[in-house]
Design a protein around this nucleic acid. Sequence first.
DNA 1: TTGTGGTGT
Length: 732
Amino acid sequence: MMSPGMVFPAKRTTAQANTPDAETPANNRTTAQQLLPVQQYASEVAEFLRTHKSASVVIIVSDTGSGKTTQIPQILTDKIFDDYFGGPKRKIAVTQPRRVAAVSVATRVAQEFGCKLGEEVGYSVRFDDMSNPQTKIKYMTDGMLVREAQTAWMLEEYNMIILDEVHERSLHTDVLLALTKKASVRRRKFFDRQDKEACAPLKILLMSATMDIERMRTFWKDAPVLYIPGKTFPVTIKYMPAPVDDYTHTAMVAVFQIHREEDPGDILVFLTGQEEIEEMVRRCRQVAKSLPPQQANIQFVPLYAGLTNEAQMRAVSQTAASAHNGHATMRKVIISTNVAETSITIPGVKYVIDSGRAKHKVFTSATGMEVLKVEKISQAQAWQRTGRAGREQAGVCYRLYTEADFNCWPQHPIPEILRCNLSTVLLQVVEMGIEKPLAFPFFDRPEEENLQAAVDQLEWLGALTQKVESGDLVVETTADGKLMAQFPVDPKYARCILRARAHRCTEELLTIVAMLSSDSPFINPAASRTAAAAAHEKFSSNEGDHVVLLNVWRAFRDQKKGNVKASRAWASQNYINLRNLERAEKVRNQLREVCVRKKIDLSSCGGNTTAVRRSLSEGLFMSAAERLPDGSYITVDTRQTVFLHPASCLFKTKPACVVYGTLIRTAKLYVRELCLVEADWIDAVGKEYFLAMRQRMAEKLAGKTTSAAVVAEKGETSDAMEVDGKNADSVI
DNA sequence: TTGTGGTGT
């Protein structure tokens, strides 16, 4: 067992500049604490907006705690709404990357505004719309606004779109950056030329933390910028004098050092994942047992998104200030993933310990492969973590890396739009009437290869057609594509639903696709793994994991005829996560509504699971794999060696041919969410696709005679290719 | 024979 030791030099008294906002001229910390900075600057904000009344885009920059999200929309409605916008008065949309934020901010603003939530001030998030036609300020998730744009891409319902937390660069915020840019130009032209009563110009307000402002100004042709100081307290930064190998161990030593030497205040530790966190919590509790009685006032709580709401609440709720051991107060140590970076705010934190790492998902369009790996975070993320120590009082951030290391890290994380499968977004954008998706004004343009891969994939799925007109790629959605765009799921699953019409099993496919859109219904607690596996056995199938999901759903639905209590008991006995199933139910209802609206036949196949598998094969044919003699598999299109994931119900039976939902590299290159299919089915639906892929591979190989290409030709694993410093993408 | 960073329609 480790012994608590000293990892950091003695306490330094000088507070260093803590966040980038300390450098902005407007920043000072002598503000009256009862007022939010924006309230103090209200007249300046109003003046700024009035001065730039003719600008279609303005930028407001501010860090945590300025109150910009709650106050600025109110300033717009209170002070200048009447004369600020030309044309008829409609709504202000304020987008948020997270639903909880949209809901909670709207609730607070409705109170301040003195109206009932859902009237002048409201919100709109998936499954929950609290707004009406008279709503003036509508908080919404960015994804929700993208959805709305699909039917009205010029966003005529709004006078102004406020994009909040732009610096986070969420996928949908990036889509909106491009879309609103296009819409504002079009609306301006429309307004100038035509009926001024029918359509007002569209104003855009970007709200961001202090970063990347110059690039943003360039993108928006020198948009005016207003800086507002945030309200945070100074945070002292302490770096490691030398690099550490074992950051978990170092984090533990730091925790106990702080506990021994520093003032009261909770500690927030940033690690990378559930397993690592549970392990550290366990070891900390062990060490705490041997602390002297006067130091026993310490407790450890894990925090990650996979926890139940109750467990998350336990981590977030304020430490009971009640005396412990007669006099000392309890110190709480929250050991968390990056969920505590932005999504969850924890009161009472005075110390942050930052491992400097996080798990990131990387997607490769050429192979459809995902990798989830631990990587160094960006400087912006490090500042975000640091800021968590200064919300209520001055704090300290212990960085488990050297200053020299930190200075070498990238300034910003890679935006999501550059590291995800673009097919869903692309179909949405095309359905808005954007015919030349390669010319869409992305703030950060995805690699053309990735965009083209998404276009190709959508074409193979029958969602669109593409052609080249005077050098530009022009695409158009097909009738099926228009239907597919209606479903809020990956287009390949939308295609499965559409194919289910022919096989008379749309009800079953709705269930399966809804279940795939939600987190797994299975709970596998480490302590009772055998019991859980035994309980799950009754849902098993030799036809694949999709049929297993269907079985779970049917059991759940039959249970639901009973009462809530019975439902809970059933879930607990069967190691089933009820929350995830209830979410799947909501998704299913939404998908079903799309079918009703679009007059898509709803039919059920009963026990005929062949029809179900056939439908799946026709949407997932691009993700097919065949068994090799040694029990491994090879993907039919890109000829990569892959392995069935051991958690799949087909792991043992190893059928000759499967389609899969995801291809992910962890210990090996695994395929998951497997469905047993006949090779004939795949050939029938994917013949042209496989021919085209084979031809493309041959062309690439002809052009490249590197050893990597030869290895790829033999169908070796991409491991072998990586030895050459290449990967499968470079040869396919 | 494995494993789930985090969002969202």
